[in-house]
Design a protein around this nucleic acid. Structure first.
Lengths: 172, 172
DNA sequence: CGAAGATGTTTAACATGTTAAGTGTTTCCG
DNA sequence: CGGAAACACTTAACATGTTAAACATCTTCG
C-alpha cells in the first residue's frame, strides 16, 4: 500500500544496471528466505505477546520452563536457543518481575537452577490460548502435512550443516 | 579448542514433570525450527564477514546496492529486509566509512538516494569468493534440488501468512 | 495562500544478538 | 596441598530489532 511516487514508475527494483558482479538472486538467498519466513510467522505472535508485556525471548524462556521442574542456566540456554549473555539479562528481569525463581545448585555453587513461578504459570496460561489459536490458523493455511515436511527439511538442513566449520577463506 | 557449543538437543531435557499445560513440544515449534535453521546457515558466513569488518546486515545492504545503480532508502529497506531505524543507523556508519554515498532526491527533498561507492565494490569483491564457496558447500551438502524445494516452501509459507493479521485474541 | 494531514527519514528508548573479558568455583594434577 | 586450567555464569561494549515519537518536506483542499 501507498507506493506511488514519481511519474516514471520503476515498477520493480533492481535491474543490475551495471552488471558488476554475478551475485544474483540476493532476495532469494537461503538466509533471506529463512529470515523472511520466520518474520512472517513471528509477526502473527508478537502482538499477543506484547499485550502481556512479553518479548519473544521472554516467552521462549517461560515456555521452556513449563516443560521442566527446574533447570540449570546453561541447559535452559540450549533449550530456548539463546546465548548466555542474553539469557543472563533476561533472567535478571524475569526474576525481578517474579515470573521465575533462581537458586544455587547444592552440589556446585557455580551453577544456578531456575524454575517458573506460580505467577509465571498464570501468565503463560493467559497467553497460551491465543498462541495456540494462531498456530492452528497457520497450520490450517499452510497445511499440516506441508508443515511437517517443512520442519523435516529445516531439521535436516541443520543437521547437514552441523559439522561444517572450516570453509573459512583467507580473505583477511 | 572449546568448540562453540551449538544448542542442539541434549536428549536429556524436558519431560514435562508436572503436566501443567498441553503445549506443543516447544523445541519443534515452527519459529524455533526456522530460527535454528537460519542460525546454522549464518554461522557459516559470519566469520568471513567479520574478517572484513562487516556485520550480516551491513553485508546485506552492500549486497543489495550492487544490484542497482541507486536506490531510495525506503526501497532499500524493503530489499534488504531491514526496518527503517536499523537501516538509518547502518547507512550513517557505512557512509562514514565511505562504502556508500548518499544524496537527496531532486524531485522530493524528503527522499534520500543511496548508492555503493568504489570502495564498497572492492569490499564486496573481497568477500564474494568466500561467500560463494560457502554457499556452494551448503548446496552440495543439502542438495540443490532439496534446497530449491525448501526455498519454495518458505516462499509459500510467507505468502500464505501474508494477509493474516487479525487473530489477535483479547488476552489483554 | 495556508493550515491540516500524509509521507520519508531520523532519533529515542528499550531489549536482544554477538563477541570478548571478568568473576567466582571447581577440578586436575604435579 | 596448591596453583593452573576448566567451568558456569555475568558484565561489558557495540550492533541490530522493535516500537513510538520527532522532524522535515510535500500534498490536499478549503
Amino acid at each position: 500500500m501507498a507506493r506511488k511516487k514519481s511519474p516514471e514508475d520503476s515498477s520493480s527494483s533492481a535491474v543490475s544496471t551495471s552488471g558488476r558482479l554475478p551475485m544474483r538472486e540476493f532476495s532469494r538467498s537461503l538466509p533471506m528466505s529463512l529470515l523472511r519466513a520466520r518474520e512472517a510467522v513471528m509477526r502473527q505472535f508478537r502482538p499477543s505477546l506484547r499485550n502481556q508485556g512479553l518479548t519473544e525471548q521472554q516467552w521462549r524462556i517461560l515456555r521452556a520452563l513449563t516443560a521442566v521442574e527446574a533447570i540449570e542456566v546453561t541447559e535452559l540456554a540450549r533449550m530456548a536457543f539463546l546465548l548466555g549473555p542474553s539469557l543472563s539479562r533476561i533472567l535478571r528481569d524475569l526474576e525481578a518481575r517474579k515470573l521465575v525463581e533462581r537458586k544455587a545448585a547444592e552440589a556446585d555453587q557455580r551453577r544456578a537452577v531456575v524454575s517458573i513461578s506460580a505467577e509465571g504459570l498464570k501468565l503463560i496460561a493467559a497467553v497460551a490460548p491465543t498462541s495456540e489459536a494462531i498456530y492452528a490458523e497457520i497450520t490450517r493455511r499452510f497445511g499440516a502435512r506441508r508443515l511437517s515436511e517443512l520442519q523435516e527439511m529445516l531439521s535436516a538442513l541443520e543437521q547437514d550443516l552441523a559439522g561444517m566449520e572450516g570453509v573459512d577463506g583467507d580473505d583477511g
